[in-house]
Amino acid sequence: MAKATMTTIRAGDGDGGSVPSAARAAKVVKVFGSGPTEVQALKEVSIGFDAGAFSAIMGPSGSGKSTLLHCLCGLEPLDGGAVFIGDTELGKLTERQRTLLRRDRIGFVFQTFNLIPVLTAKENITLPMLMAGTKVDEGWFDTVVETLELTDRLHHRPTELSGGQQQRVAVARSLITKPDIVFADEPTGNLDSHSGGEVLGFLRRAVDNFDQSVVMVTHDPHAAAQADRIVFLDDGRIVDEMFTPTVEAVLDRMKQFGGE
């Protein structure tokens, strides 16, 4: 287990480095409400997420971590700044183009209700292709299904799968298009520790074996510890960064947020 390294990030520090970023936020501002009830969820956040890395975003509730995720995948419109998936600036796309980008270049794993109840596991996995009307790469499909150990569950409907199996189907779906990046919002939040660990393992394997980029929002230190890099958010700003984290290091850092 590598020792955790910590660096403190000054707010406003942008991307950099030679590794291309799968997703990037540049001075992103997000405000909710107006007048006296105005809440600044994100205050000029700039951050890049490397391709081929497993990144986590952590922070106390209200820190803006989910909002940042939503902005990065184009689901939340910005009040300032820009977000990029690869070289594509999302703000310059039409609604339809953003939708298609989500379909073809982004993978999603949500906390719960990831699957369409009327579709089988196989159909849920190949959902992006079904929507696009394109053929699935059979070889890749088999690889993903084997990796996620779903081979004998393919023709079941979500109601016939356990929570852990459902999340694995969701992960498989998120990988099937070989997206630029996979966004996972509290993927283990509804699972017991065993299933949760399994899902995290699969995400890890996706990054290691298939060079996938994964950005995960979580409040679970065990989950975050699986990542290569953790970005800490507080009150709408990036306040810290941790590389090759350990569970203990994460717990320590989180204590510093006080009272969460």
Binding site: R96, T99, L101, R102, R103, D104, F108, F113, P117, M131
Partner: peptide
Amino acid sequence: THELGLLRAVGLTRRQ
């Protein structure tokens, strides 16, 4: 609603 939101998030267009 939830399911429809999911489909839209994952890339179903409005027209679809």
